[in-house]
């Protein structure tokens, strides 16, 4: 069974925001809501790095854990989705999410905070696949059309990879091995430190 994941290659991302535009256009995302955005570290400094960030479809999603009305669910492919008919727009998920994925449209006559909106991995919602109701609430369901997320498929430099985690990890690994760099920016070494020859592995208690 495929397990859907995104990987962004910081060595390739050129901060063009094509992924952001593709997402906006594909799902007709309203003003003020950005399901995906490009984050740049050390902006303006030589060697700056950018990555495209959206919902990471966590395996143990904190948004799911904290939602007071249990509106989230995970599909068989590991995509974290939610039911907008159940969501109460409380915003608790936005506090729990480390990536700022949950977005809240400011709609309604009195500027009320709307129901949560986030990246669906182009998998729609609980309404019938490809239905008008699904499209209106969640945008296009590309996965059920046999396609991958528009942001990844539209990425001009193929910095953003989307699909089965094993497949995209293999693609990324091939790149890193071929060019001989790239894993040091975002990856195991950055998160846990580089291994030292002869040193015993660190054990966290």
């Amino acid at each position: 069974m495929a397990r859907m994941k995104f990987i962004c290659d910081a060595e390739r991302c050129i901060e063009c925001n094509g992924c952001v535009t593709a997402c906006k256009a594909e799902h007709d995302v309203p003003w003020g809501v950005n399901r995906r955005r490009v984050v740049t570290l050390n902006d303006g400094v030589p060697g700056e790095k950018s990555i495209s960030v959206a919902c990471m479809h966590c395996s143990d999603a904190p948004c799911m854990a904290v939602c007071p009305v249990d509106c989230f669910y995970r599909t068989a492919e590991g995509v974290v989705l939610h039911d907008k008919d159940v969501c109460i727009g409380c915003g608790y998920c936005s506090y729990a999410c480390p990536f700022g994925a949950p977005q809240f449209p400011s709609n309604g006559t009195f500027g009320l905070r709307g129901k949560m909106d986030k990246c669906t991995f182009c998998a729609g919602g609980p309404e019938a696949n490809g239905s008008a109701a699904e499209n209106e609430k969640y945008g296009r369901n590309r996965l059920s059309e046999g396609k991958l997320p528009a942001c990844a498929e539209m990425c001009s430099t193929k910095a953003l990879l989307g699909g089965d985690g094993d497949v995209v990890a293999d693609i990324f690994r091939t790149r890193v091995l071929t060019r001989g760099k790239g894993s040091e920016v975002w990856g195991w070494g950055t998160a846990y430190g580089k291994p030292v020859a002869g040193a015993a592995p660190k054990v966290t208690k």
Partner: peptide, 21 residues
């Protein structure tokens, strides 16, 4: 309607339309 979370169809239960790959 104040109902519980709805069940979602599987992704391979294809959407109908001209855009299906």
């Amino acid at each position: 309607t104040a109902s519980g979370r709805k069940a979602d169809a599987q992704a391979w239960d294809a959407a109908k339309g001209a855009y299906v790959a």
